[in-house]
C-alpha cells in the first residue's frame, strides 16, 4: 500500500536525511555500474578514428578529401590486414549503361561465378560470402519457390536448370528509395553503389530488395593477407567495415576500366554476356534483340538491368 512519502514531502530541511544519503549512494553505484556495463565500447572507440567518424558523404567530398580518404583506408588495410592495396575510384564512363544477360540454357550451375565473386570482391572468408546465389530450378517452372541453392551433386542434373541471381542493378531500385541516409544510390552507368563509410547499417535496403542482392557485414570481414585482391575500388571491392551493407557492383573497379566482370571471366560455359546497353553494336544489345529475354519479378516494376534468356 501507500508508503510514508506523503508525510515526508513537506519537510524541506531534512537534506541530509538517511534517505537522501542512500539515494546518493544508489545513484553513484548506478552510474558506476552503467560505466562498467558499457566498458566494452572503449575498446571499440579506440579503433575508430576521428577522421572516419567525421567523414562526409561521398558526394560531398572534394577530390582532395577523397584522395585523403583513400590513403587513410589503404593505411588501415595495411594495418588491419597486412596487405598493400590500391584504392581507386573509377567514375562512370560517358555513354555507357551496363547490362548483363545470362543464358539459362547454358549455365550448368557449377557456382564458379560465385567463387570468383568471393575472391575478386574480398569477401569475408568464414561465411563464404558471395554476391551470387545459384538456384537449381525444376524444369517446367521458373517459380523461385521450386529453386534450391544447397545442391551438391554433379551438375547439370538432367531434370534441372540453373539460375544464378545477383544484383539486378534496377532502374527503379527499391533499395535506393528506402535508404534513410542516401548511403546508396544509382550511378549514371546504372550501377547501384553503397558508400560503406556512410551506411548506418539499418538493413532496410536488405528488406526492400526483392532479389536477395544485398549482404550485411555481421562481423568484421576476415581475409588472409595473401588472398586479398589489391586492386580495389572505393565504391566496390575494398574491404568493408563491420556493420554496413554491401552489394554487387558489376565489379565496377574492372568494368569501368573496360574489363569484364570477374563472374563472367570465371564462367566455364560462357553463359554470361556483359556490355553497354547504349551501344547498338554491343553483344548485350544483340541478345536483347534476338533472344527471348525475361527479367526476374518483372511484376514488381523494378526494371532490372540484368536479363535471363534461353537458347531453345
Amino acid at each position: 500500500m501507500s508508503d510514508s512519502t506523503p508525510t515526508q514531502l513537506p519537510v524541506l530541511n531534512n537534506a541530509c536525511s538517511r534517505r537522501t544519503a542512500l539515494k546518493a549512494i544508489g545513484a553513484t553505484l548506478g552510474a558506476a555500474a552503467f560505466a562498467r556495463a558499457l566498458a566494452p565500447l572503449t575498446e571499440w572507440t579506440a579503433d575508430l578514428s576521428v577522421d572516419e567518424f567525421l567523414q562526409k558523404h561521398y558526394m560531398e567530398l572534394s577530390p582532395e578529401e577523397l584522395k585523403a580518404v583513400f590513403v587513410r583506408l589503404e593505411e588501415e588495410t595495411k594495418q588491419d590486414y597486412g596487405a598493400d592495396v590500391t584504392i581507386a575510384d573509377p567514375r562512370p564512363l560517358p555513354g555507357v549503361k551496363f547490362g548483363y544477360a545470362l543464358n539459362l540454357s547454358i549455365c550448368i550451375g557449377c557456382r564458379k561465378c560465385a567463387e570468383a565473386c568471393h575472391q575478386e570482391n574480398n569477401h569475408d572468408r568464414p561465411s563464404g560470402n558471395s554476391y551470387i546465389r545459384v538456384l537449381e530450378m525444376a524444369k517446367g517452372s521458373i517459380d523461385l519457390e521450386q529453386g534450391n541453392v544447397d545442391y551438391d551433386h554433379p551438375v547439370p542434373h538432367e531434370d534441372k536448370f540453373y539460375m544464378p541471381v545477383q544484383c539486378q542493378q534496377c532502374d527503379n531500385p527499391p533499395c535506393v528509395h528506402v535508404c534513410p541516409v542516401e548511403a546508396t544510390w544509382k550511378e549514371e552507368d546504372g550501377i547501384v553503389v553503397v558508400d560503406y563509410n556512410w551506411c548506418i547499417g539499418c538493413r532496410y535496403c536488405e528488406a526492400a530488395c526483392p532479389y536477395h542482392a544485398r549482404r550485411f557485414n555481421w562481423v568484421k570481414p576476415q581475409v588472409p593477407t595473401e588472398e586479398i585482391n589489391p586492386d580495389q575500388g572505393y565504391l566496390s571491392n575494398r574491404i568493408r567495415p563491420q556493420g554496413v551493407i554491401e552489394k554487387c557492383t558489376y565489379c565496377l573497379h574492372r568494368t569501368r576500366e573496360g574489363r569484364m566482370p570477374a563472374c563472367l571471366e570465371a564462367c566455364p560455359t560462357g553463359a554470361r554476356v556483359f556490355g553497354n546497353l547504349l551501344d547498338p553494336d554491343s553483344e548485350i544489345r544483340w541478345v536483347l534483340a534476338n533472344k527471348r529475354v525475361f527479367v526476374l519479378k518483372e511484376e514488381l516494376g523494378t526494371r532490372p538491368s540484368f536479363f535471363y534468356f534461353f537458347d531453345v
Binding site: G258, M260, G270
Partner: peptide
Amino acid sequence: NGAHGGMTGHWDLS
C-alpha cells in the same frame, strides 16, 4: 554475336 562461348579480357575494345 558474342552470345555463346566463354571469354576474358575487355568488354570495351577501345
